[in-house]
Nucleic acid binder design. Structure first.
Length: 469
RNA sequence: GACCCCAUCGUCUAGUUUGGUCCAGGACACCGGGUUUUCAUCCCGGCAACACGGGUUCAAAUCCCGUUGGGGUCACCA
């Protein structure tokens, strides 16, 4: 494959959401797979809805996911600028070509007239498209007409457009169903379907990979390519992501902002992995590193049907990545030692869980769970606690093996099973009944904190109410 | 409503291009069991699907038609 040029073209009216991120990922993957280029283009044609904060938010999301672009608003590139609001001249120039060749005409219809016609169509059970009222007005009369107007594309009355979609296959649309679309508003601003064509062409985009919701726009865009005398790029429409009720994914299905997953402790590698597997597959493989993804990705591997967002599997995927992620990297994020992270990461599904579960390592004070202290810090467990303390204190080396050996001696001497000594100690140093293995925990916690806490636990056990007679 | 797309376990999916090797495989979730100092990991097992109806064919999850269902789109939004 000749190096493809793909682009992700979000409209900056919010944050980077799950669906957009998945589209961006596929674009990025296709470009990286074949040594092509990936462009980030900001579609801020609609000035009212676009904000700089939103652009920053989208960039932040892309960066978090690790989807880097070769051309874009901040890095520049040969086809810049990469914000539609800054490309007016380019659009004007192309509109001119359409006017020169007679492919566009002035439409003076008012909104009221258009709305009425639309309702009429619907009432008659037809597709609501422009009826061509102004299509045959003599251009010679345009000059003297003071009424406001829009420019419409003159679409062939018959014939059809075939979108040779790379994931859907060939899709046919009769021209009669398309209607003459507006390409320039009455205030002079060009419209989406027109600018997207101009941009993709001037940026040399070879593969337009985008959501399914754009499939119906594609024939219109192809018509514009034709009118401009240009060859359309290849198109690939990937299925949308739905919520569990099979409705289009939205906020009421839970978090749709990619960055909120960062806050919830998800790893970018896991998110990328999961997003890739939603709508794309490679045999039975579930876990992919970025390198594996780049190596295996293809449009042929994309499914055609919409997929349901599955938070449960995302969590599993993240857990898999927690266990595979280098402890040093995790330690840098949460602040613990590598040894401490090693004890935690296999039982934490997210970074947030890791941070919570390791709180006893990092906080000076621990919170005792009432049910745990009641069961394990009492008169009956006092001997095990005291004997352990006595055995641990003089240890020259404070490590897992030494601790375990010392504890085994205590167990034999007191004729106690592992559970009888491990659980009281666990509650003593963590405040809870659940933690990593007790000896690795003790070791990773360190001598000082361990000794201090065991002593405090002994005090607690002594103060515990005597068992009922 | 019209146009377009889609249709395998609850969910993500393999298998559909080149019909037979599929009384349909993997993963998540769920339910059992094992390992274990707790939890988790790990291991073993179980539950569970070709939407329906017609064709074509010796043979269909795979091809064709229809039905049903779901999704998308019908702006001087993107």
């Amino acid at each position: 494959m000749t190096p493809p040029v793909t682009r992700f073209a979000p409209s900056p009216s919010g944050f980077l959401h799950i669906g957009g991120a998945r589209t961006a990922l596929f674009c990025w993957l296709l470009a990286r797979r074949h040594g092509g280029r990936f462009i980030l283009r900001i579609e801020d044609t609609n000035q009212e809805k676009s904000t700089d904060e939103s652009i920053a938010a989208i960039v932040e999301g892309m960066r978090w996911l690790g989807l880097d672009w070769d051309e874009g608003p901040d890095v520049g590139g040969p086809a810049g600028p990469y914000r539609q609001s800054m490309r007016k001249d380019i659009y004007t120039e192309h509109v001119g070509k359409l006017l020169d060749t007679g492919h566009a005409y002035r439409c003076y219809c008012t909104r009221e007239e258009l709305d009425a016609a639309r309702e009429q169509c619907r009432a008659e059970g037809r597709r609501a498209i422009y009826q061509g009222t102004c299509r045959n007005i003599d251009p010679a009369s345009w000059d003297g007409d003071e009424r406001p107007y829009v420019w419409r594309l003159r679409v062939p009355l018959d014939g059809e457009v075939v979108v040779d979609d790379l994931v859907k296959g060939p899709v046919t649309f009769p021209n009669a169903e398309l209607g003459d679309m507006v390409i320039v508003r009455s205030n002079g601003d060009p419209l989406y379907n027109f600018v997207v064509v101009v941009d993709d062409h001037t940026m040399n985009v070879t593969h337009v990979v985008r959501g399914d919701d754009h499939l119906a726009n594609t024939p219109k865009q192809i018509l514009i390519y034709n009118a401009l005398g240009l060859t359309p790029p290849k198109f690939a429409h990937v299925p949308l992501i739905l919520g569990e009720d099979k409705k289009r994914l939205s906020k009421r299905h839970g978090a749709t902002n990619v960055m909120s997953y960062s806050e919830e402790g998800y790893l970018p590698d896991a998110m990328v992995n999961f997003l890739a597997r939603l709508g794309w597959s490679h045999g039975d493989q579930e876990l992919f590193t970025r390198a594996e993804l780049i190596d295996a990705f293809s449009l042929e591997g994309c499914g055609k049907s919409p997929g349901v967002w599955n938070p449960g599997k995302l969590l599993w995927t993240n857990h898999q990545w927690m266990m595979r992620t280098d402890s040093a990297a995790l330690a840098e994020q949460v602040g613990g030692s590598i040894e401490q992270i090693d004890t935690l990461k296999e039982r934490a599904r997210t970074v947030v869980e890791l941070r919570n579960q390791g709180a006893f390592y990092w906080n000076d004070e621990i919170a005792y769970e009432p049910r745990a202290t009641k069961k394990f810090l009492k008169a009956a467990t006092l001997p095990a606690l005291e004997a352990s303390l006595a055995a641990f204190e003089p240890l020259p080396e404070w490590n897992e093996a030494a601790l375990e050996t010392a504890a085994k001696e205590v167990m034999e001497r007191l004729e106690l099973g592992m559970g009888k000594i491990a659980q009281p100690l666990r509650v003593a140093v963590t405040g809870t009944k659940v933690s990593p293995g007790i000896f690795e925990t003790l070791s990773a916690l360190g001598r000082d904190k361990s000794i201090t806490r065991i002593k405090a636990a002994i005090d607690l056990a002594q103060a515990a109410p005597a068992p009922a007679p």
